[in-house]
């Protein structure tokens, strides 16, 4: 198998193998925390930090971890980093930690992190794994921030807590509710696929 360049690994995470848009991983958290942009940013930071650290640690330990107990070992490593992030958030950003609530501890079982540990970090070197962590983490972050932006804008009429439309706008509570999350996520995936299909068709036409 030909080794991928670091740039390709990064772009895979950000776009071509985007964890939410393509792999459909971590959808639960991306639906739950996207009620406001600030929540999404907090969640993004937590996921990026944990993903990079756990990818590096697991990549370093990949020769030591016995195959039979590898999933358990990954969880222990990830849980360690999540605990650090959780405690740091509670200490320095208590209000954000409050509004994210259970979803920070739940990063332990976030499919993206476990999937990258299993599918990438356990098979690749440290630097490649770190780059994969950054790419996948950013890919996740960009998508949940887009979803959160739309949901907060329509659902509350605000961006990062600031009113944008003035008094005339009446926000639709549907976008704060789970139904709105599904609609926005669905439309985001549809847009992404439409652009991708168009590019593929253009490539095909050039051949």
């Amino acid at each position: 198998m030909k080794k991928k360049s670091l740039g390709a690994i990064f772009m895979d995470g950000l776009l071509f193998q985007n964890p939410i848009l393509v792999q459909m991983l971590g959808v639960c958290s991306s639906l739950a925390v996207t009620t406001s942009l600030i929540n999404a940013l907090g969640m993004s930071a937590a996921v990026i930090v944990v993903l990079i650290c756990s990818n590096i640690a697991i990549s370093l330990l990949r020769k030591i971890i016995p195959d039979q107990v590898r999933i358990v070992s990954y969880i222990v490593v990830i849980a360690g980093f999540v605990t650090i992030v959780d405690l740091l958030m509670q200490a320095y950003l208590p209000s954000l930690a409050d509004s994210l609530g259970i979803f920070i501890p739940l990063v332990v079982v976030n499919c993206i992190i476990l999937a990258r540990a299993e599918a990438f970090a356990s098979k690749n070197g440290v630097i490649a794994s770190a780059v994969d962590g950054i790419g996948m983490g950013l890919g996740y972050s960009v998508v949940i921030c887009i979803i959160a932006f739309v949901r907060e804008l329509i659902g509350s009429g605000t961006i990062l807590g600031y009113e944008v439309f003035g008094g005339y706008y009446q926000p639709s509570s549907l976008f704060i509710l789970p139904a709105g999350a599904f609609i926005v996520l669905g439309c985001t995936i549809a847009c992404y696929q439409a652009v991708r299909n168009r590019k593929a068709a253009r490539k095909e036409a050039l051949k």
């Binding site: 009446q170 926000p171 639709s172 509570s173 549907l174 509710l177 709105g180 609609i183």
Partner: peptide
């Protein structure tokens, strides 16, 4: 049902 977000109206 989409409009149910504006519940009062």
């Amino acid at each position: 049902v989409f409009l149910s977000g504006w519940a009062t109206l």
